[in-house]
Design a protein around this nucleic acid. Sequence first.
DNA 1: ATATAAAATGTAAACGATTACAGAAAACGA
DNA 2: TCGTTTTCTGTAATCGTTTACATTTTATAT
Lengths: 329, 329
Amino acid sequence: MKRIKDVAKEAGVSVATVSRVLNGSDAVKVETQRKVKEAVRRIGYSPNLLGRNLRQNKTGIILVMLSTLTNNFCSKVIHGIELAAKKQGYNIMICATGDSKESEQTYLSFVRNKMADGIIILNSNLTAQEMQMASASFPVVQCSEYVDTERTPYVSIDNRKAAYDATINLINSGRKKIVFMGVENNLVSSNLRFLGYRDALDEANIPFDENLIVYGNYGYRNAMRVTEKLIQNNVSFDALFAISDRMAAGAMTALKKHDIKIPDDVCVTGFDNTDITYLFEPSISTVSQPQIEMGETAFQLLLARIEEETAENIILQHKIILRDSTKNI
Amino acid sequence: MKRIKDVAKEAGVSVATVSRVLNGSDAVKVETQRKVKEAVRRIGYSPNLLGRNLRQNKTGIILVMLSTLTNNFCSKVIHGIELAAKKQGYNIMICATGDSKESEQTYLSFVRNKMADGIIILNSNLTAQEMQMASASFPVVQCSEYVDTERTPYVSIDNRKAAYDATINLINSGRKKIVFMGVENNLVSSNLRFLGYRDALDEANIPFDENLIVYGNYGYRNAMRVTEKLIQNNVSFDALFAISDRMAAGAMTALKKHDIKIPDDVCVTGFDNTDITYLFEPSISTVSQPQIEMGETAFQLLLARIEEETAENIILQHKIILRDSTKNI
DNA sequence: ATATAAAATGTAAACGATTACAGAAAACGA
DNA sequence: TCGTTTTCTGTAATCGTTTACATTTTATAT
């Protein structure tokens, strides 16, 4: 592999001059620039980034951490990050942890140890304390999911209000027995969406019924099973709010199997506005998040952290999207 | 940020000794090891990877390049890569190019310039020559999609045989007017699957009919439109082979809209065995690729390249999966 | 022509680690 | 005890850059 020294020799100048040309310094005579560029071309030189980044103490790389790639929602957010990053000359690399704590720590350590300039965490199993610790030693920003800490800013939507809006919409189309299909994890979105659901019930003076609360794992098949069980248990309901589109779809498949009409017998609402909502028959009402904007904002926050400015948490606007799975009033 | 020098001072030893302890050399007295570890803990030291990797001329990182994350197929392959990589102490990072040539070059340059030890390319717009060039200066392996070059090994399935098998299956259930829904790009999978389709027709002495060849863009909506057009043009057909599951699903939606019964009037087969094949109603017959194994194999090949061994191309076995969208004979 | 300022280049010291080699300390054998 | 081997530790070179500072070359003013 060629080194800058080789270029210098080839061009008959010092390494400093080569470096200056490579970095576009204006303090080099045009004629010398030509000689250097020619030499670079001739010997096929490309600068070692480990050397450069070590010296400059920056890499121009930021990491994006998430548990799994199979997630339509995340890929849009990442696209947003990418757009913003590219504008500022940063490149992003995606780290899939598979929900493993060990993986999470490995990727964090890449940032801690200077192989990247910062990290945007879409989701993780980090405790508030761990998040705090990480933030104390390198730039971290949370996006979409978050744990609340002093030091790690986040961008998200108002999950509680979003779930409230979705539920109110079901109530407004005359439904009273509304199933809440959540996920039993500690994600802030899960918790807040449940609270939003309750807010709506409270406001409409609908008593809370524990039998209408069920839990799945975000997945399609699992939601089918859970819904089957509801039906088998003769639980009576006229609407269902799932905190993911895939769960909504799974539930609908189970309902259809039992000849329960959607939306006439049961209205269904999902969350995230992923592809499946319009692939499905009937199409699925849902809550849409501004994913691109969320990604872009996350990058802005991270950049602020990298440049040692302070960054505030940011809440973006959601939107309720009405499709065929809910009755329009 | 603490440096190894700080640890040395704190522990009252030399930097060499600290380095040895950190790297698990056995040539350090137990008592000294204790002192060093204690010092590391006390001052909260973590080694700078740019320094380390520069010196060792390796990073333990490999990149995985693909165009877009929204691809169920790829995420399984990546999981395979991850499994194999972790076993050998490597970590992977994913680079989404969004099909931009510029992005592709940027990520390649990270490897060329030593920020990663090698790269697995799932898909790209690189020409054979560009691929060759890249391979000449750092370890590259292709996975699933590939261009044929002397130097860049690949792992894939026999796309031609797979398409042949899928088509023969349609023929065997009595179909003769089989639509081929492909994608007009230069991907090896697109080309070979078309050839496989023709092989099957030839073998069954079914004349090739150009009117039955249509093209889309892998997507659901687009496939719907394309199928609509077929129907509007009164093209008569009794089966459809799409080179992606999403296209198969889109086609089916269009067929259902026109009350064309699946599989009775038209049999449909997709490709890749993604989630949508069983989410859909009726469930979709498809061709399954051993994604995990493909990922693992790709990593093995890459490791061989990194260790300067030679690596041969590898073809893995596919499987035809029969579901409700084709008539079982 | 000369002094001075400005522009261009070079030398060498970083950046933060690993490691070849040398040297000191401990262990061993007689 | 002393020489020899073995074990442990330290010094300094190295990886490939960038960049502060020094030096040389060129331009400008007088």
